[in-house]
Design a protein around this nucleic acid. Structure first.
Lengths: 153, 153
DNA sequence: ATTTCTGCAAATGCTTTGCATTGCA
DNA sequence: TGCAATGCAAAGCATTTGCAGAAAT
């Protein structure tokens, strides 16, 4: 068991207050923030921090496997300090991203499944992402007048 | 059984050569092109076509449910004329997107699963996307020297 | 004739890059 | 001290928007 600082140093990555702060924001939230959201949370305590630093930091944290990147399709990248594969659901109304903890990922990560995919497609599989789309309870109330159009996520 | 033209007219959407051409490109390919790729395919036959028209057309086709949009995380939106839910795999090496037809989507679309998600999260589910990530057979050969870094998709 | 669409150019929004300065090791 | 990271501003892309002219109904 090592601290994040030790992990970074072991990889010859310098420990800076900005990096620790970005990771702390991700660790404390379940809202799967994008870079802009992380930046706004940090601004009061780190008035000089820049968006570029936040971008570079999330890239680094992703590269070393401490966080995962989500592509829900809202035009920005969102980040999750829980790097374990798990399903997410995106609200088409307000953009909220929520974890789905009870969905079993077993079949999706199973070696046999990956081998079957390799047999069908020739790809060597290394990761999975599962996204559900819908309306959160709040947006469901507001948008109730039926949506007849086919779902566009 | 109606033609695409009839479907559009029934929705009071005008039938134009550009729209038919964009749909024809998607219908003929399995490469899940983005707007730029569709535009380049059309340019020789439709020298005056604009990217904006392609963007507007794919939005329209998605809205009426004739195509689906994919977010594999390559910084562009990709489109598939097969609007039925099915899994996709993205090559981290060359960006190729391939269908996975043999993967059973049953559990992902099952009413009970969606109700369980609603019970856990409060969301009313309306769609799913499943993306696998890996290396295609071609890139696997080239990139063979092991990749030790954690997977970043 | 009316309404909608096209194509162009400008604008927007997210992300990346180059570089001088700063700060960790 | 030496190398890497920060912060700033500019640049880069993908996508959207406004609008005048063109085309579909």
């Amino acid at each position: 068991m090592q601290t994040i600082e030790e992990l970074l140093r072991s990889k010859k990555i310098k420990v800076t207050p900005q990096r620790m702060a970005v990771y702390a924001v991700l660790k404390q939230t379940k809202e799967h923030p994008n870079v802009e959201m992380i930046y706004k949370k940090l601004k009061p305590d780190y008035p000089a921090i820049s968006l570029a630093t936040v971008y570079k930091t999330v890239d680094m944290l992703k590269r070393i496997g401490l966080i995962q990147e989500l592509n829900v399709g809202d035009g920005s990248l969102r980040f999750d300090a829980n790097a374990q594969p798990h399903a997410h659901i995106y609200c088409k109304g307000c953009g909220k991203v929520t974890d789905i903890d009870n969905f079993s990922f077993a079949q999706l990560q199973n070696q046999q499944t990956w081998e079957d995919i390799a047999a069908e497609t020739g790809f060597q599989v290394s990761a999975v992402q599962l996204y559900f789309y819908g309306l959160c309870s709040h947006c469901r109330r507001k948008n109730s007048p039926a949506d007849t159009a086919p779902d566009t996520q």
